[in-house]
Every structure is written in structure tokens, then in C-alpha cells.
Simulated scan of single mutants.
Amino acid sequence: MTIGALLTGLFFIFIHFMTNKILPTERLMQLRWFSFSGGLAVSYVFVYVLPALHTEQQNIALDLTLFAMQSEIYFIGLIGVIMFYGSQLYVRQRAHDNELTFWTQILFYTTYNALVAYVVISAQVSVLQALFYSAAIGLHFIAVAHDMWREFAEKYNTVGRYMLALGILIGWGLGVFVEFTALVQSIIFAFISGAMILNVFKYELPEDKYAHFPTFASGVIMYTAITLSLKFFFEW
């Protein structure tokens, strides 16, 4: 196990147990926090996820001549969007059944956490890279965990956070001890990227009346500038 994988896994688990301690309690500061984290997440999508999808598509096109449309990986990402959006609609349309809603949400996000953790931890990056990319994913996890806590505070504290942390542990274990083929890794990355892109743009950005654009823009500019600089100087 690399140090980067160890620190990344511990960081993700820490987030799910300490989300409500990390977030500011004052309403205005909390809204600005979500605007800032939304900016980081949007930047992460454009400067890392989309270019990485393009690279994965090129790699499988070179390895497997059956893939000829130059869009197979994006199709897998679209499946991720459909499944994530469908599950969210299912939950919201049955909001009157709190027990069903909670378990549907928690099981979905446990699986989601496992796949995201696997993708990040199996990337075999340096400690600095792991910490830097984990920052954007970590803020994304904070937004997800906070939404769960806001809707089901008691159940989240007693069961939910442990389930979400278990998902991280499962993905952590897969990333460290299981080696999938390059094609399977590409499929997992594309699927979870589609789900993440939808989650960022539809559920993670604050509503217009709660958004603080200067804070959002500062998050985008800061993360993009640092990422592009590191790519340029260290060839990330």
C-alpha cells in the first residue's frame, strides 16, 4: 500500500465522520462554503475528469480494435448519468416513505463511494497528487454527506455515516489489493465520472438564490490555476 493510498483512504473516512464538525455553523458562511466547494468540483470536472475520459477512450481504442466509434467510454459515462439521475428521481418521488428513501439513498451512495475511492486510490499517483486530487473529491463527499445528514440526521449519525465509510473501505481495499484489467478500470472510471458530473452540476451547486458567485468563481480559478500549473511544471 502506498502512502498516497493510505492518506487518501483515511481522509475520505474522516470526512464522513466529521462533516458536521467541518462545515461552518453560520448560515451565510455555510452557503459560501458550498459555493466555493462547488467551484472546486466544477473545475475538477473540466481540468481532470473530462480530459481523463478522453485519454481512457484513446487507450481502449488502441488496445481493442472492436471499439471503433471513438465514443464507447462516453456512452458508459452516460449510463452513469442515467442510473444516478433515475435513482435520485425514485427517491424524491417516494419521499413520504422515509425508511425506503433512507436505505435507497444510503445503499446507492455506499456503492458510489466505493467506486470513487477505488478510482482515486488505484490511480497510483504520488503522495502530493493524491492529496491534491483528494481535496476536490473530499469536498464533493462533504456535500453528499451533508445532504444525507440534513434529510436524515438521526439515521445518518447512527447508521448512515458508518455505511458510507464502509463504502470507502471497500473501494480502498479494491484499489490496493485487486488489479482489474485496463478495460474494466476504464469502464469503472467512465461510469462513476458520469454520475459525478451529474451530481456536481445538478445537486452540488447551490440554488441561484443561495449561490455566491464571487466565492464560486474564486474556487474555480484557484483550483484550475493550481492544477494547470502542476500539470505544466511537473507533467501530471
Rank of each mutant, 00 (worst) to 15 (best):
Q185W: 02
L205T: 04
V184L: 10
S186R: 00
I192G: 01
L205D: 04
I197E: 06
A211I: 10
I197S: 07
I188D: 08
A211E: 10
D208V: 12
V200I: 13
L205P: 05
V200G: 00
E204L: 08
Q185L: 07
A190V: 03
S193C: 09
Q185S: 14
S186E: 00
I187P: 05
P206F: 00
I192C: 01
I187D: 04
H212V: 14
A195I: 02
M196P: 00
Y203C: 06
I192D: 01
Y210N: 15
Y210S: 15
L183P: 00
G194K: 02
F189Y: 11
F189V: 04
Y210F: 12
D208F: 08
L198F: 15
S186P: 00
L198D: 12
Y203S: 11
I197T: 11
H212T: 14
Q185T: 10
V200H: 00
L205E: 02
N199Y: 00
F191Q: 03
L183K: 02
K202A: 13
F213W: 13
F189R: 04
P206D: 08
F191N: 07
F201Q: 05
A211L: 11
Y203P: 03
N199G: 02
Q185D: 14
S186D: 03
A190G: 06
V200D: 00
V184N: 08
Q185H: 12
V184E: 09
I188H: 06
Y210L: 13
I188E: 07
M196E: 01
E207Q: 13
F189T: 05
A195H: 06
N199A: 03
Y203T: 08
N199V: 00
E207Y: 05
Y203F: 13
K209F: 10
G194P: 03
E204N: 14
A195C: 09
K209Q: 15
F201V: 09
E207D: 14
M196H: 05
A211R: 14
I188A: 09
E207T: 13
L205G: 07
P206A: 10
K209G: 12
A195T: 13
F201I: 07
N199W: 00
Y203H: 15
A190R: 02
